[in-house]
Design a protein around this nucleic acid. Structure first.
Lengths: 243, 243
DNA sequence: ACCTGAACACCGTTCAAGT
DNA sequence: ACCTGAACACCGTTCAAGT
């Protein structure tokens, strides 16, 4: 999918898919998702808006490609843990930090269903889950749980920073506001949220994230317990088919 | 936030926030996210585009409100499990099915940072986690992990159905395509993804989802194990502060 | 107080025309 | 083969004007 022409001329001025993606990443980092428009992009690249369409399919393609560039980097730098659980933690933290640095990646991943960036992450997680010694028929459940948790956190973090950026305030200021809003909720209807609101003010997302990863890793290592306290097996056969 | 005027006149024709939200939900269900425009909405409501702005703040507000209507229903119908784990499963499955029926809810939740729909879910999960007997200082980690996993799955499911809808194909056809695409990947670079591609074809998202929930519930019930096999405690203090 | 609808600024995408 | 840039269809939002 990503084909690099090694023998490419080093003309700094010529347009190319890679240059377009690099410029897109800069814009996305500086101005957020709403900042990336074909007009802004073509201006930065000193070209016409239509020229970009010669190299990329459409905006969705562009976003996925930019996202993939970040994910590829992140995956490459994360395969150096001592043990499988350590590597999985490093991998997860790597994605967390990547989305923290590039919030738009969080939402891009949510819109890149089954595309290359997801495949990269699945592959990396999968290899470690195998190395962990998880039996074949339980591997996908483990991988998919880790993946979706990472994507869930990433999506929320992306939304938080994006929302804060839109309102022109700092991300931590936004979380502060959210915390006070939560603590003002009706005590009868939202007892738990009120309690947790105070903790939110002093918490670190990163620590919570790692705790979640460890929770899941712990679950992967333990047998699953059903309501009645008995060991439970997840049914292999489909209990019902949806359309 | 949602204030209902009990003594509201039963004039079927008059515009109101509730009617706008109901119409929005219909449009979103029928035509997907891209179908909801102020023009389509005002046409269905037989009014001017600007009239809608008298009742709602903007499109983001509208989307969150529509999402909240679905979430509120779902939470209300899910608090009837026998035991805390059973209730948590029912709650999670309820959200899964709600997003399955209304894919746009999945992405709306990702864009409703700290808003009412999220609060509802957090409260419901939180109460059950408390009932589960999880110690105070570990409750948020458990709740946040369950929440983000649910949001992660929801976001991906939403993206899958949305993507399939855009290309005019069935959701299962899309998963089929994805599976074959994955199985054609380079065997050296993507060994795990290739293996798992075959399983993807015959799997049921719903079963995988439940397996993930059970994995997390299992982790909540077990002590966490670090790389070296020792019991690990998640640090309470922030190891580093991010901006 | 509530609604109308034309107008505004902006967007992704296309395409005839250039080199 | 690659680029230009005007044009198109469409969007969310505003606002003077109506009732």
């Amino acid at each position: 999918m990503i084909k690099k022409t090694r023998s490419r001329q080093r003309r700094e001025e010529s347009l190319s898919r890679d240059r377009i993606i690099a410029a897109s990443i800069e814009i996305l980092d500086n101005s957020g998702e709403s900042g990336l428009t074909f007009r802004a992009l073509s201006e930065r690249l000193a070209t016409g808006a239509g020229a970009i369409y010669w190299h990329i399919e459409n905006k969705s393609d562009l976003l996925t490609a930019a996202c993939d560039a970040i994910v590829a980097r992140t995956m490459a730098s994360c395969v150096i843990g001592a043990t499988p659980p350590a590597t999985l933690r490093a991998l997860a933290l790597g994605m967390f930090d990547a989305i923290d640095a590039h919030p738009w990646v969080g939402s891009a991943l949510t819109h890149a269903a089954g595309q290359l960036p997801l495949v990269r992450i699945v592959e990396c997680i999968g290899q470690q889950v195998r190395a962990l010694g998880v039996p074949d028929n339980a591997q996908w459940a483990a991988v998919s749980t880790l993946l979706h948790f990472i994507l869930g956190v990433g999506g929320q973090n992306a939304a938080n920073t994006q929302f804060a950026l839109t309102r022109g305030i700092d991300r931590s200021d936004f979380l502060e506001e959210m915390s006070t809003a939560w603590s003002r909720l009706d005590a009868h209807d939202y007892p738990f949220v009120r309690i947790v609101a105070g903790q939110l003010r002093i918490h670190d997302d990163r620590v919570d994230f790692l705790a979640g990863i460890d929770l899941i890793l712990g679950g992967i290592g333990s047998p699953q317990v059903a309501d009645d306290g008995n060991i439970k097996r997840v049914p292999k056969r489909l209990p019902r088919t949806r359309t």
